[in-house]
């Protein structure tokens, strides 16, 4: 795994609601519920933790070895990247790391619950075309 990742804003909108993290990709209308410890990974990425710092934090929180955590975390992070939910933090990699609270609930087995059933509604809601950062791109650019 590389260095720091960051949430792919403004393309991605995310919110923790009643303990469940909901992540929406505005370019595709797909949304995700983060399950099985995935919310902890999301929290750590949001707080600016490097990949190795995430391994350390998750190993301590879940009481698992770093190798065990790493072997689970790597493919999950790749999935987050392939879904364009996170991107390489690039020149933001020197940004300070914030605090991240990990709420252990069972074993560490993060996965994305992917939903496309509201894609039409989300893409037809014509509200995401203006942003100081230049969002959006037409969906076909995504």
């Amino acid at each position: 795994m590389g260095g720091k990742l960051s949430i792919n804003v403004p393309r991605v909108v995310h919110e923790t609601i009643d303990g469940e993290v909901i992540v929406i990709d505005l370019a595709t209308g797909t949304y995700f519920s983060l399950q099985g410890g995935a919310a902890d990974v999301w929290t750590l990425i949001s707080a600016g933790h490097s990949s190795e710092a995430m391994v350390d934090a998750l190993a301590a929180a879940y009481g698992e070895s770093q190798d065990s955590i790493r072997s689970t975390l790597e493919p999950f992070v790749k999935e987050l990247e392939s879904e364009a939910l996170v991107v390489d933090a690039g020149d933001q990699s020197s940004a300070q790391t914030g605090t991240a609270e990990i709420s252990v609930d069972g074993a560490f087995s993060p996965y994305l619950e992917k939903h496309t059933d509201m894609a039409e509604l989300i893409l037809l809601d014509p509200v995401h075309e203006v942003d100081s950062m230049g969002w959006p791109h037409r969906p076909e650019d995504a």
């Binding site: 909108v13 995310h14 919110e15 609601i17 009643d18 469940e20 909901i22 992540v23 929406i24 949304y31 519920s33 939903h115 059933d117 509201m118 989300i122 809601d125 014509p126 509200v127 995401h128 075309e129 203006v130 942003d131 100081s132």
Partner: peptide
């Protein structure tokens, strides 16, 4: 539909999580 510099998405930018709230509410109903 008019596109301008003060569409709701821009002027309510601190409320973008509302879209996730709407999605979550629908998910819970289903």
């Amino acid at each position: 539909r008019r596109l301008h510099s003060s569409n709701n998405w821009a002027r309510e930018s601190n409320r973008r999580g509302d879209l996730a709230m709407a999605v979550k509410a629908s998910l819970e109903r289903r």
